[in-house]
């Protein structure tokens, strides 16, 4: 919805490489394609609405339960797919380069959403918060493909995830994300209040695109 057709480069060669999800399985898990990372990586993402066990999930993260190695992101702090994927890409890249600042690639996703280097602050704002997180983005990053094949791996991840997260799965699209975004919070976290570029922009879709760019830039410039 926020895509500007004028600047979008649509290339059939690019899109045709995206496989359809395996038939017969209805799932809201999506394999996310990123560029400029090793081909062995597999990234999966999903969005859960009305999550009822946020406290339990956060407790698993804190106790470093290996069964719960996911990036849990409070969906109200995400403003678009590209915004989320910028953090995911950064985490994978940082991991490949051996420069992780946090215990693993999943926690790195959450910390990467921050515009400063304070990791605890990143978890608190973008991570899962007991009693507060209602809608949850889940990202699973695997550094190697499954020997049984991608379809099987995808199915396994989804089966485990739906047993662990108590919520209503929806597609991880810009439309679904926009429904749960807390714009006031996002504006505050990314220091967008008073940014002249947003005041100058009247068109609402255009404005969201600019907010997305500002957030991504803030993340890219973290610590500068």
């Amino acid at each position: 919805m926020s895509k500007r057709p004028a600047t979008e480069t649509s290339d059939p060669a690019l899109t045709s490489k995206r496989p359809k999800p395996p038939s017969g399985v209805t799932m809201s898990l999506e394999r996310i394609r990123l560029e400029h990372i090793p081909e062995s990586y597999r990234v999966y993402g999903a969005l859960f609405r009305d999550v009822s066990n946020a406290s339990f999930l956060q407790a698993q993260l804190i106790s470093r339960n290996p069964e719960f190695e996911y990036a849990f992101v409070d969906a109200s702090t995400v403003l678009s797919r590209a915004h989320l994927l910028a953090a995911v890409w950064n985490a994978v890249y940082t991991s490949v380069e051996g420069n992780l600042r946090t215990p693993n690639v999943h926690s790195e996703v959450v910390a990467s959403l921050n515009i400063n280097n304070n990791i605890a602050d990143g978890y608190r704002r973008w991570g899962i918060t007991p009693d507060k997180t209602k809608d949850l983005v889940v990202v699973k990053i695997l550094s190697s493909p499954d020997t049984l094949g991608d379809a099987q791996q995808e199915k396994d991840v989804w089966t485990r995830l739906t047993a662990q997260v108590k919520g209503r799965p929806v597609q991880l699209t810009d439309q679904e994300i926009a429904q749960v975004t807390d714009w006031q919070k996002v504006r505050k976290y990314y220091k967008m209040n008073g940014a002249p570029v947003l005041d100058q922009t009247k068109d609402e879709a255009e404005k969201r695109k600019k907010m997305e760019s500002l957030a991504i830039m803030g993340m890219a410039l973290r610590g500068l």
Binding site: A86, W89, A195, P196, V197, Q200, I216, M217, A220, L221
Partner: peptide, 18 residues
Amino acid sequence: LDRCYREGVPVPAVLAKD
């Protein structure tokens, strides 16, 4: 670039950097 973009000067946005 960040400063210009924020201020509404038409410049390309930064996506990532190392």
